[in-house]
Design a binder for these strands. Structure first.
Length: 202
DNA sequence: GAGTAGATCCTCT
DNA sequence: GAGGATCTACTCA
């Protein structure tokens, strides 16, 4: 199992990076607790030209500044005052592209994930949905800006990959306010995987 | 099983 | 001062 290099994230096509993240392993080692899961669902956010992105139109604030950095770092955002959403920043400096990790298949440290989410036993809801992903892995807003090449948070490749026909595309979830851009097929997921977040048809 | 309301707080206007 | 890249529980049928 090898850690993905910075060059993986710094490519200029966020859609390709998003697709290739499927099947990779997200690892966190906070406070000595080792947890990891295989990525089965992501969403791409194409910065300045994407209404659903926080950086739409070149908006640049303290919060979004992280997205303008070079690829390979974490962008964590607090949503609805409750949910921490974990993103991977891609592309190069001054291009605010990011990928939201929406679902994982738990691999290591499941007992610790259950503790963090106040669950008794493993079920498919543990890492289904972006709020649950960061909760079970212990990711919080204070982790925004840290490198994915660090020891406590990184993404690894164990050689496993999904066949093209297993990878599906669809419109993104929860971005109805984005108008026409809400229809873009920027969400990618593994077909038939039970951890992929449910059909929210609105 | 489906639909809806409530939680809860940081960020930008 | 408003609203958001969401989730859960509770209602009603």
């Amino acid at each position: 199992m090898k850690k993905l290099p910075g060059s993986f994230y710094q490519r200029d096509n966020v859609l390709i990076v998003a697709k290739e993240l499927l099947g990779k392993i997200l690892v966190t080692k906070f406070d000595g607790v080792d947890t990891s899961g295989r990525i089965v669902e992501v969403e791409a956010y194409k910065g300045e030209i994407d209404k659903a992105s926080h950086a739409y139109g070149g908006r640049r604030t303290n919060r979004t500044e992280v997205m303008y950095a070079h690829g390979g770092i974490a962008y964590v955002y607090l949503c609805y005052g409750i949910h921490h959403l974990f993103n991977v920043v891609t592309n190069t400096k001054d291009i605010p592209h990011a990928i939201l990790v929406r679902a994982l298949e738990p691999l290591k440290g499941i007992a610790d994930m259950l503790l963090r989410t106040n669950k008794e036993k493993l079920d498919f809801s543990l890492t289904k949905g972006p709020g649950n992903v960061s909760k079970s892995l212990g990711i919080q807003t204070k982790h925004t800006g840290i490198s994915l090449l660090s020891k406590e948070l990184f993404i690894a490749d164990d050689g496993m990959s999904y066949a093209k026909k297993e990878i599906m595309a669809s419109p993104r979830i929860g971005v109805d306010y984005a108008g026409k851009d809400a229809e873009l097929q920027y969400r990618f997921y593994v077909k038939g995987n039970p951890y992929v977040s449910g059909k929210i048809v609105k």
